[in-house]
């Protein structure tokens, strides 16, 4: 998988959010995006997921223009901003509902991924009873469960205790070894520096290699 941003600009009304972004992402690497809040990191990730369309320029997934193809990016999973699940269902039920869309994985595989993120004891709790950290862990489980080729995480360690954060870092490094593209955005430099092979700095709508 190869992802390319070519001269991508994003404006909301007339306000420029991202300016002339030219980037490439390749397999087997973790990419980090650092920038203060409001610098355009989340908008960049949403463009990458196809949730936003560039005002100008193109985004290619394996040489296929995302906008022209009218498709969402293939084999991509994301956790952007905060996790979104149905509050009246348990963590397991939420993941099962999502897994049922593509029917790629079994219940056992869902439980396995919940174990990975230390949610084993809380799988039967309703999502609305989850703490911020538990919600975040469920969001990460949702991203990992179907073994996607591209993993996009925005502030993945928000509200997560040190022990689980360490575990998730380890999981991400394992995923990288499986030749995946992992893109992580954070305003905490240490989170990124510890994991990323290549770090980009997002500042005032411009993205430059740090």
């Amino acid at each position: 998988m190869k992802i390319e941003f070519k001269n991508v600009n994003k404006k909301f009304k007339k306000t420029p959010i991202l300016k002339n972004v030219n980037l490439e992402f390749e397999n087997g690497k973790i990419y980090g995006l650092i920038g203060r809040n409001g610098s355009g990191k989340s908008v960049f990730l949403k463009l990458l997921c196809g949730f936003y369309e560039p005002t100008e320029g193109q985004i290619y997934f394996d040489n296929v223009d995302l906008k022209k193809s009218g498709l969402f990016p293939p084999s991509t999973r994301s956790l952007i901003e905060k996790p979104n699940f149905l509050p009246y269902l348990t963590g397991f039920e939420n993941l099962k509902l999502l897994a049922n869309i593509q029917k790629k994985i079994s219940d056992e595989q869902i439980i396995e991924v919940l174990n990975k993120v230390n949610l084993t004891n809380d799988i039967n709790k309703k999502y609305c009873e989850y703490s911020l950290g538990m919600k975040q862990k469920l969001g990460i489980a949702q991203v990992l469960m179907e073994d996607p080729e591209v993993i996009i995480l925005d502030e993945p360690f928000n509200g997560i205790e040190d022990e689980t954060a360490k575990k998730i870092r380890k999981i991400l490094l394992e995923e990288k070894e499986k030749n995946k593209i992992i893109i992580i955005a954070s305003h905490i430099k240490e989170d990124i520096e510890e994991l990323a092979d290549i770090v980009f700095k997002v500042d005032n709508g411009e993205i430059l290699e740090a």
Partner: peptide
Amino acid sequence: GVDNIFLR
């Protein structure tokens, strides 16, 4: 949760 659904 639609961002979760859109990619699937």
